[in-house]
Nucleic acid binder design. Structure first.
Lengths: 181, 181
DNA sequence: GAGATATGTCAATATGGCTGACCTAAATGC
DNA sequence: GCATTTAGGTCAGCCATATTGACATATCTC
């Protein structure tokens, strides 16, 4: 670990002591760890999905619908930041194979509100469980307040314009889930 | 923030108190923050690359070649975990447009060692600078030891089988860079 | 010299993005 | 009540990035 920490200490000294005054030495370790960590983080679900003939796009849709049952198509597009044509293909497969259903909105009958089926919830929870296992293991290897620290770090990485929206989304989904039990 | 913290405290209580005894409640916040944070993290480079007609695949190649000049094609394939056919197309464009060059290995003349040109280094450093700016801002919003904490978290997220290899790669590239100055 | 290795390349295929055009049904506004 | 806007769907085509499989060439190793 000594060998590994040395350059990092140097980075930190540079970025805090010399600050924005000069071109900053890249923070290579975090840049690369984000790349490798995200790849592994996505990897477990990928394997399960591949066996079902699904990809990451299906995972994202299923995840967000499961987290936010009754979500409008437009909201999903907004979160995923893809076009409705791109969503269409993936969503159609999830619906045809019985993972997701659409229900007409009560107030606004143009809306096709999205819900996971039992089958869909089961898959979504299985995938979330894989990712949770990995994260729980990681957090347990750190000290106290690990989850809070990780959350603060990741939140700080967000574009500042997105931050509120992302945190609101998470808080709202959590409230809804607690309400459902 | 109170609204946001509440469910998280509940998660932590569950996962530490009840442990692996029952199916763990998903750690939704970290799962989703990883998704959103990684997307923003990748976003700045994406915009620059798009103007040059490049994509993420080009970024990855350029990044690792810049970090590890003289790298063998096989090493790059191993890090990126793609096939040589996939690499071929992207690498060819980077070479044709003067961002990367290949040199015959001295010991083994079958090898085509990869190097960034001045132009390639300049682009690689520009992209790394964007990501560094984001990360530096994020770290500065946290307490002391932020970089160390972030590194420990991300390292812990890695597949345990990959960890050593990833850390060795980072340490080796750092050493090489210090040696070059 | 035989066989293994490093790299490159051709061809076909899949996935998941995109743009642009156009459609229906329902809500909304004057 | 009719015009317009909105929510959503769909067709067609394009692009980037990945895959598998087969094969070619040069060079190294034994």
């Amino acid at each position: 670990m000594a060998d590994l920490n040395a350059p990092v200490a140097a980075d930190r000294a540079l970025s805090s002591a010399e600050g924005a005054a000069r071109a900053q030495e890249p923070i290579w370790d975090i840049i690369e760890l984000l790349f490798f960590a995200y790849r592994d983080f996505i990897g477990d679900p990928d394997d399960v999905l591949a066996k079902l003939g699904f990809g990451r796009a299906h995972h994202r849709v299923l995840h967000f619908v499961n987290r936010n049952p009754g979500m409008k198509v437009a909201e999903l597009l907004d979160i995923l930041k893809i076009t409705k044509q791109s969503l269409g293909r993936v969503l159609k497969q999830l619906i045809d194979q019985g993972y997701v259903v659409q229900k007409e909105g009560v107030n606004d009958r143009r809306q096709r509100l999205l819900y996971v089926t039992t089958k869909g919830e089961s898959l979504a929870m299985k995938l979330a469980g894989l990712q949770t296992g990995r994260i729980a293991r990681a957090l347990s290897e750190m000290g106290p307040n690990a989850q809070d620290t990780a959350r603060r770090f990741l939140t700080a990485v967000l574009n500042s314009e997105h931050r509120d929206a992302v945190l609101r989304f998470i808080a709202r989904a959590d409230r809804a889930r607690r309400a459902r039990g």
